[in-house]
């Protein structure tokens, strides 16, 4: 059964120079517990998609379903992470991770919340940094903390909008593996918006290619690689072929079909 169902979603932004269509009859289904990576050309409405799933906005037409319920407003069962880790600078790392629990589970005893947060911080390799301020951490560490905050309240869905986009390549690969380890421990369903095809193949169970604006579902690629992948998997023939296919799809999406390069 699909945890997330996006059915015929069409949306346009109202701008001074007339409506700007960003999504056109979009169809996406994400089975429970799986990882969907969404790729597409720049400015094709991928971020709009995250806001729709989170219930932060409603589409002009079409429906967004989450766990059998129509999404019309924000719900507590969603976690979000962005390219900018948006940690609150005046809070310690621990208190940053605790933030969602203050909203979602205000009655949960503090000790219990702290235990949960510390568990997660340990999972992403941030044990010992609980009392630090975000400004004392590196970019990669901040993004790890941001991931912990996104899932501390055990959301059904984790929505990530290019969370590793601003990191250097090695840090990024480290975080992919952290992400893989987190998923082995926590049962959330994942939607990842990314520009990085290798990232989409390494993390995704399916890669959804969106067309240029207004975005339609151009191609859905199933990733049949073992669940406990290592970075090496990206160098296997199967993965390389997928990357080729995706690269071609992106070229088509950019309107440069048959690309000479």
């Amino acid at each position: 059964m699909n945890l997330i169902d996006i059915k015929g979603v069409t949306h346009a932004y109202r701008t001074p120079s007339g409506p700007l269509p960003v999504l056109d009859n979009l169809e996406i289904g994400v089975p429970e517990g799986t990882f969907a990576a969404v790729v597409g050309p720049s400015g094709c409405g991928k971020s709009t998609l995250t806001r729709l799933i989170a219930g932060l906005m409603t589409p002009d037409r079409g429906e967004v379903w989450l766990h059998g319920e129509r999404v019309r407003s924000p719900r507590k069962t969603v976690g979000m992470a962005f390219q900018n880790p948006v940690l609150l600078e005046w809070r310690t790392i621990l208190d940053n991770v605790l933030l969602p629990l203050e909203i979602v589970a205000p009655r949960m005893p503090r000790a219990q919340r702290v235990t949960r947060a510390e568990e997660l911080l340990a999972l992403v390799g941030l044990s010992g940094f609980e009392g630090k301020k975000p400004s004392e951490l590196s970019g990669g560490m901040r993004q790890r903390a941001s991931l912990c905050r996104a899932i501390v309240h055990k959301p059904e869905v984790l929505i990530m909008d290019e969370p590793f986009g601003a990191l250097d390549n090695f840090t990024r690969e480290d975080l992919w593996q952290t992400m893989r380890d987190l998923r082995a421990k926590e049962p959330f369903t994942c939607v990842l918006i990314t520009h990085d095809l290798r990232e989409s193949v390494f993390l995704g169970d399916q890669v959804i290619v969106l067309s240029g604006r207004p975005a339609r579902t151009q191609r859905v690629l199933r990733v049949d690689l073992p669940a406990d992948r290592t970075i090496d998997v990206l160098y296997t023939p199967a993965a390389v072929e997928m990357l080729h296919t995706l690269r071609d799809e992106i070229r088509i999406a950019q309107g440069r079909a048959g690309g000479a390069h």
Binding site: R51, L56, P74, V78, M80, L88, L99, I103, A150, H153
Partner: peptide
């Protein structure tokens, strides 16, 4: 930044 608002708004 809207993301700051969104992390809490998304939780209702």
């Amino acid at each position: 930044e809207p993301e700051y608002r969104d992390i809490l708004r998304a939780l209702g």
